[in-house]
Design a protein around this nucleic acid. Structure first.
Lengths: 348, 348
DNA sequence: CTCTCCTGATAATGCGTATCTGCAACTGGA
DNA sequence: TCCAGTTGCAGATACGCATTATCAGGAGAG
């Protein structure tokens, strides 16, 4: 490394203004009490020197002295800025940037984290985590041990996405899929539907479980009768619909639902005229048969704002009081069902 | 601020291993010379303690002690992550992320910089600039005084985009539009064209000047005769083309060129059959008359990689030797002319 | 005239790390 | 046995900032 370029320090300001470094610090922080008093005239002299030399404090020194840095970390378990992930991360990152700008925080992307055992890891030998005041975690596959360590170290952080699987109390903001799922099913019922299919993947994430439970609950209390179908049986859907008399098919996500529609239309079944469809997930940008696919709009910008708000709360609260806080926040997704959930066709 | 959570320090490691803090530092940094010698047995003992306590170095303290942090700053004069700017910044950010990951650097977005006098400013009272080892600057409108201050402070930084207007030697990576512009004009000549129009905006940026100079040079040495036309005269283009006998029209950018095409087709002039068109700029995603608009493809991911490479060079080089480096790098844009530059129609 | 209180500062210290200097304890050679 | 050289560390210090304790000098009270 070349010699670190020397920049203006408080000591230099002090020499020029003819005071001590202490006084400069006091003036900078507008401190004044019974212990320390600086008359207006001296203050002015110091402030002038600060202006002239265009002093800016060294954040590393501030940090070392135990102060905050107004930096928050952003850790993603996959590349955040690649074109592929932009679809998902884009609105979140945009929301984070806007919220950070609002409160005057800088955003540190932990792009350096090396890949170990398949995923990136937050704790490595030179992690810059501790430079930040707090941290936002993004990604489908978080490592439980890292979350637990963050909790144990009482480091302020917020995960985006539900993190109930871990024993420790992980602060998160996430999307409530249950409320809008019920709303969507109620609308289907109001349109005359009685029999339905739910097409799902094999995965067992918290949100997948949520959706399935909502569907099963609706089936159990007689609102809407469901048959649950794995994705491998999509080719068989036309027959299944026929056999069960289903007039609605819900998919776990938008892509799956598109596959469902292809299977139906290939068999000559009209969507949505004969069978209504919807995804219990984000559907922005997804169209089937020239219509906007019914499903949810997830407020992702707001999700980011909420995450930073929660993080800020954690940062300014003593860790020992965290248990008194509401560290899990759910945002309700918005239902958009108009175009592919339509009234049930009169029986022939 | 709540009390700073205490974490593992070298001193604690030292106590457990029964050595001094110095020794821990030496072991961590694998230092060994004639001044300091640690036998393998002691090293092992210290390393074990480090493992057991899962020690990670405090980046702030490292920085204060004059070492590098492996953090580079990213300053944009506009919001970087908004959907509107993604078109332009997206590929750059992606390239930066990938390159940063390669070399193990974290990426600090200066999202906190407040707006003063219309633009964001890099130097404010609490700027975290000095936490970084170097900085990448993005944006159309950079503030000359800030660039000069960075140069004066010998702070390693690289601008993306040409920055010749400033007196001080500003390191940058940018796109060479002149070489591909000449190539494109040569192709037009090879296709039999002799007379052309160049439609430009009123702005006087370095790249705008480059393009105009290239066009004027081609005109001067008789390769291709040009008439330069301001954008306000686009409605008049059909008449101008007729009057000059021009069979090619070049636009300063893709949007301008699209307007040109609309003006021509509205007047019944076939594009590209009767008049070939191209933009002397990025044309990805732009189509006219069902064809990919001719023009350039700017290698933006590569631009980002080149910027980080230059930055890294600056960081590891003593500032006093910077004048010996090639601190301005140009990347040649790729010509894509096939679809809307076609052979000149035989005269009737 | 002495004692106390207030004013306007400053010296000293700590934060965690790296580095430079120094210094015992040992070893080998004469 | 005495000295020079080597081995294996520890002490001191710097980095830039905030904070705590302290201190000299002057004013006011008794």
């Amino acid at each position: 490394m070349p010699p670190k370029p020397r920049r203006v320090t408080q000591r230099e300001i002090a020499e020029i203004a003819g005071v001590s470094q202490t006084t400069v610090s006091v003036v900078l922080n507008d401190r004044d009490g019974k212990n320390v008093r600086i008359p207006a005239e001296t203050r002015a002299r110091v402030k002038q020197a600060i202006e002239e030399l265009t002093y800016v404090a060294d954040p590393a020194a501030r940090r070392l002295a135990g102060l905050d840095n107004q930096i928050i970390g952003l850790f993603t378990y996959e590349a955040a800025l690649s074109p592929e992930s932009m679809d998902f991360y884009g609105p979140l990152l945009n929301g984070l940037e806007r919220a950070a700008e609002q409160v005057g925080w800088d955003l540190l992307f932990f792009t350096s984290s090396p890949v170990e055992n398949g995923t990136r890891s937050l704790f490595h030998r030179k992690t810059r985590l501790r430079l930040t005041d707090g941290c936002v975690l993004l990604g489908q596959q978080m490592v439980a041990s890292e979350l637990e360590r963050l909790v144990a170290e009482q480091f302020p952080f917020v995960a985006i996405g539900r993190r109930d699987e871990t024993a420790a109390a992980v602060p998160y903001v996430a999307i409530d899929y249950v409320t809008p799922a019920n709303e969507l099913m109620d609308q289907a019922v109001a349109q005359g539907h009685q029999q339905a299919l739910y097409v799902h993947r094999g995965t067992d994430t918290p949100t997948a479980r949520d959706r399935r439970l909502a569907v099963e609950a609706a089936s159990a209390d007689g609102r809407l009768s469901f048959l649950l179908v794995g994705e491998e049986r999509i080719p068989d859907l036309p027959r299944l619909a026929q056999a069960t008399g289903a007039t609605v098919i819900l998919g776990e996500d938008a892509f799956l639902t598109e596959d469902v529609v292809h299977s139906l239309t290939a068999a000559g079944i009209g969507v949505p005229d004969e069978i209504s469809v919807a995804a219990l997930a984000e559907v922005r940008g997804h169209r089937v048969e020239g219509r906007a696919l019914a499903g949810f709009h997830v407020p992702r910008e707001q999700l980011a704002a909420e995450a930073l708000d929660l993080l800020q709360t954690l940062i300014i609260t003593d860790p020992n009081e965290w248990h008194t806080l509401e560290i899990r926040r759910l945002l309700v997704a918005e239902v958009r069902s108009r175009e592919t959930i339509v009234p049930r066709k009169a029986q022939p």
